[in-house]
């Protein structure tokens, strides 16, 4: 079942995407199809099954809190679309 235009707009807003009307229509149908397919999982009873988020059952990995060399300011800023006085420059945030 296709998603509603409102659903598509809501999800796009959450994902910080601006979609054209054409994209909205296309995604409503395609996402609907994909979600229908995914609903196949409802066939399975998983009430007593533990979720797996990491396959090897890894716990938190800790390390000593030591100071080590890291990238310098110039390297960090080298890919910035806009920079000024050693800072990343963005549009005004506070009025």
């Amino acid at each position: 079942m296709a998603l509603s235009k409102k659903d598509v707009e809501y999800v796009a807003e959450l994902a910080r995407l601006e979609l054209t009307d054409q994209e909205k229509e296309k995604y409503a149908i395609q996402l609907g199809k994909i979600l229908d397919y995914i609903c196949k999982l409802k066939e399975l009873d998983t009430q007593n099954i533990e979720p797996t988020s990491h396959v090897l059952g890894l716990e938190n990995v800790m390390r000593e809190d030591e100071v080590k060399p890291s990238l310098g300011q110039d390297e960090i800023l080298s890919n910035a679309p806009q920079k000024e006085d050693g800072y990343f420059k963005v549009k005004k945030v506070i009025e």
């Binding site: 910080r16 601006e18 979609l19 960090i76 990343f88 549009k91 945030v93």
Partner: peptide
């Protein structure tokens, strides 16, 4: 579009900059 990568030059504010950059 803040630290690296493409940034849209069509945005008027920060939120719009995120959206247009990503779209």
């Amino acid at each position: 579009g803040v630290k690296y990568g493409y940034r849209s030059d069509k945005a008027k504010d920060l939120l719009e900059s995120y959206k247009k950059t990503r779209s």
